[in-house]
Nucleic acid binder design. Structure first.
Lengths: 225, 225
DNA sequence: GTCTATATTTGGATAGAC
DNA sequence: GTCTATCCAAATATAGAC
């Protein structure tokens, strides 16, 4: 049984994201969100304190629900190619309903706002962790396991999706070309997984050296920050 | 010989980018930019019309100059690995001075502002074209030529750099992991270029089929938009 | 070409009635 | 818990003096 206050809170949260989605973060003022929710803007401050805290709460709720909703689908994935296919489908769906656009707006705002930074960190963390979990499983025992690191790759995919979203608003064809490259690279990995044992050993050996180099570099960069 | 008006225009342009760099697009108001430039905010409207048009002019000027400045360095590149190394160095430098952060802010704003969209389109276009030109040259005659498309890859790299920049502000370690993946993939391509002829033929053949599939898909997506 | 002053709008936030 | 009314700060933009 939802009280009137709970309904108001929910309306404000969905309206907040809806305004960010359609008009961008810069236009997501208390007045705009209140008007969209059909309630007075003062209620935002009563229920959430500030506008950005409302957006934070809305993001937490929406991302948690979205990621949960895809969990079963990801759990049924059994190969890297399948993960890639499902990942692209999920991304396309999330993109169509505007959730990726919202995330991109929040991350841009997060660069200079600690509240949005917290929200973005949690949001991107949930998605990345979901991908990493499946990657860990489907990479196990394959040649690609030597070439890639599931955590690294999960972060790269998340960053790629956000970057491509911004790219899409500026140059749609260019964004599709970026996606085509991701597809090519995935196919390449799949191809290597199916190579002859001899060729695979050569690639693995080279890959091992390269992986070590990458990890070494990563440690150095992190130490600097 | 620079007139007083020219100096004022230049100060406003550099100040505009400096404010975006340090405080974000949302804080780049006429007052903030004017104060930073040490001139009255009214001059922004006199010289540029609106604040976003000032930012547009500043971006055009700065990006053109930056890309030109790296041209020679890119022209001396002779292999994919070398391009990757130089690209990472250039990106790291541009990131350190904040130019990547500016671009990310502009692209986020561009999603809902036609003036910023124009500016972002030109800016990202210059960088992408620079990368594509070199890719075209260094890929020629290699095994990777069959696996990749220089225009597609150039767009993917640009999108990746922007996405990673936003990611960096939210999760620095995660961003470095994303970079590590780019490095691994580049190494993989380099490895394939050095494989035995037999293995390479297998990879090439698989790559050709995959490349055709990617291009087909790309055509379909573009037709929908 | 630059500044001061100001009109106008918009936004965050709070007080107080209901 | 919600609304009205309002304060205050900040923003874009313009008019007019210098």
């Amino acid at each position: 049984m939802s009280t009137s206050a709970e309904r108001t809170r929910e309306q404000l949260m969905t309206s907040a994201l809806e305004v960010v989605r359609t008009k961008g973060l810069a236009a997501a003022s208390a007045r705009a969100i209140g008007a969209h929710a059909g309630v007075n803007q003062a209620l935002i401050f009563y229920h959430f304190g500030t506008v950005t805290e409302l957006i934070e709460a809305a993001s937490d709720e929406a991302v948690g629900r979205a990621v949960d909703g895809y969990r079963d689908r990801f759990d049924r994935v059994t190969s890297l190619s399948e993960l890639f296919a499902v990942g692209m489908q999920v991304h396309e769906q999330e993109r169509r309903i505007g959730n990726v656009a919202v995330m991109a707006q929040l991350m841009a705002g997060a660069q200079h706002d600690p509240v949005l930074a917290r929200a973005s960190s949690r949001a991107i963390g949930l998605w990345t962790e979901q991908i990493r979990r499946v990657l860990d499983r489907v990479l196990a025992g394959t040649a690609a396991e030597t070439l890639l690191d599931s955590a690294d790759l999960a972060h790269a995919l998340s960053a790629g999706f956000i970057g491509t979203e911004l790219y899409h608003g500026v140059d749609p064809t260019g964004a599709n070309r970026a996606f085509a490259t991701m597809e090519r690279l995935e196919s390449l990995i799949a191809t290597i997984n199916d190579l002859s044992p001899v060729a695979q050993r050569a690639v693995r050996a080279a890959g091992r050296r390269l992986g070590e180099r990458a990890e070494k570099r990563l440690g150095e960069v992190d130490a600097r920050e």
